[in-house]
Simulated assay, not measured.
Amino acid sequence: MAVDLPPRAAFAENPAASRGRKVPEAESRTRTAFARDRDRIIHSTAFRRLKEKTQVFVAHEGDHFRTRLTHSLEVAQIARSVAGALGLDADLAETIALAHDLGHPPFGHAGEDELQVQMKGFGGFDHNVQTFRVVTRLEQRYPRFDGLNLTWETLEGVIKHNGPVADKLDKPSWAAIGEFDADYDLRLGTWASAEAQVAALADDIAYNNHDVDDGVEAGLFFLKELLDVPLIGPHVHSAMADYPHCDQRILRLEAVRRMIGAMVDDVMIETRRRAEIGGVKSAEDVRNLDHAVVGFSPDMVEDLSALRAFLMERMYRHWKVNRTRSQARRILAEMFQLFMSEPDVLPHELGQKASARDEAGRARVVCDYIAAMTDRFAIEEHRKLFHLDVLS
């Protein structure tokens, strides 16, 4: 039976009324402005590289664990579904979800932590800012402009999906955002669209669920250990009660599926409640609120906090994961320091660019090069640079 989606919400973004692109372009004959943005992201080099960038486990550790690419696809699927059910523009929500991790370096948060250390004194590093730089500058695919020339609404969502960011502009790592905004106002002190907020919540839903799945798959904890953990525990109990003779792997997947459904339902109920109480009647009303219109209920926030605490203790800080994080940070630190001291070992064009700049400029070239690497490429590049066996 076909599912009837609700009519367009009064506070949904309208692609026909988009504020346009920084560099004007003729409209597509076959796609809305937001769908065109989505396609540009999917075809970008940075998006393809996500297939071998760490989510929690380094990409070569197993074929079944999530990477940044599969994570982004899961976020996009949830964002599109939630946006459609709320009467929002599903293309815009999906687009922002697909783009949200384009700036992540190799080795996940370990890579980001190390680049922050190496870039201290050279303008810093922030993966959200790097994502914005990727879509506005670093991707080079078009003759008329750098970046992807995305719509105002997509750019706003990329940098503001977690909330207003005007208070971050005094951080060195956010200088690029201030420079861009001075020339193309993204209203950094307001909330982004409801679609962008949906993408942010979809990120939370996706990673908390797939990290539970991957954690059990990796043997870091067992399904039975989740029985008393808030949020996931009740769904493990109900899955076991409904299917007492089922394989443990299928039970795990069923429990995760149910948790996703519960979190999605909670977001939809809470968002409708907030929109009604706040008298939200337009996309502009969403931006002018002093809080997010899309969110979890207080009970869900409490349960989610407890689940995250469990994952932090049992997964993100597990000794096996810590060991990988330590190795990853050494790889990036050693490459960064070598490229800074010997820019002539960089690929020719990058080496010339790095050599022609001052120390801070050279550091940014090196940082951009490393941040764009996949896990596998970073490991191989490090091996070539530091292991003599490649010369034999």
Rank of each mutant, 00 (worst) to 15 (best):
A99F: 04
H237W: 11
D265A: 14
A76P: 06
G121M: 02
G279E: 06
M1D: 05
T30L: 07
P143K: 04
I331S: 05
Q130L: 01
Y243N: 14
T67H: 01
L346C: 08
L223M: 10
A371T: 02
A328G: 11
A196L: 06
H64D: 10
D247C: 05
K281R: 13
L346Y: 13
R49A: 08
G361V: 01
K120Q: 13
I379D: 04
H60S: 13
A360V: 05
R273F: 11
Q55T: 00
V365E: 03
H109W: 14
H43F: 09
M315I: 02
D146P: 06
F377C: 07
D242I: 01
L50G: 00
V82R: 04
R8A: 09
Q337L: 09
V365F: 11
T271G: 05
A255I: 12
R330M: 15
L223Y: 13
D213F: 14
P244D: 12
L332W: 09
L304T: 01
V198I: 08
L231T: 00
S28G: 10
I269T: 14
D214L: 09
G147I: 03
P244E: 10
L102N: 00
N128R: 08
T151W: 11
H291K: 13
E179F: 02
L391I: 10
R80W: 01
Q77T: 05
D211M: 14
I159D: 02
Q77P: 00
M268V: 11
L5M: 10
L201S: 09
G279M: 05
D89G: 12
A275C: 02
A79G: 10
E254N: 14
Y243W: 13
Q140H: 13
S282M: 12
Q116F: 06
L115H: 01
A12T: 00
A196T: 08
I260Y: 05
A360W: 00
N162K: 14
V321D: 03
G124D: 10
E284R: 15
V293Y: 05
A202Q: 07
Y316P: 06
D63H: 12
V280Y: 06
A206K: 07
G62E: 11
N322L: 11
L220M: 15
E153V: 09
A9Y: 06
D170N: 14
E94W: 03
P298R: 10
V129K: 00
L338S: 07
I159W: 05
V58D: 14
R325H: 15
L311Q: 09
K51M: 05
A9P: 03
L307D: 01
K384G: 07
H210Y: 13
F11W: 10
D170I: 06
V134A: 03
A356T: 07
L311K: 07
L304Q: 04
P230M: 03
A192T: 10
E380A: 12
L253Y: 00
D167F: 13
I370E: 00
A200C: 09
P230L: 04
S18T: 13
G103P: 05
S341C: 03
A309W: 03
P164K: 03
A46H: 12
S193N: 08
L169R: 02
Q130D: 07
E254P: 03
D181P: 01
A26K: 04
H127L: 01
L226T: 02
D91M: 03
M268S: 09
S193T: 12
M340V: 07
G163Y: 01
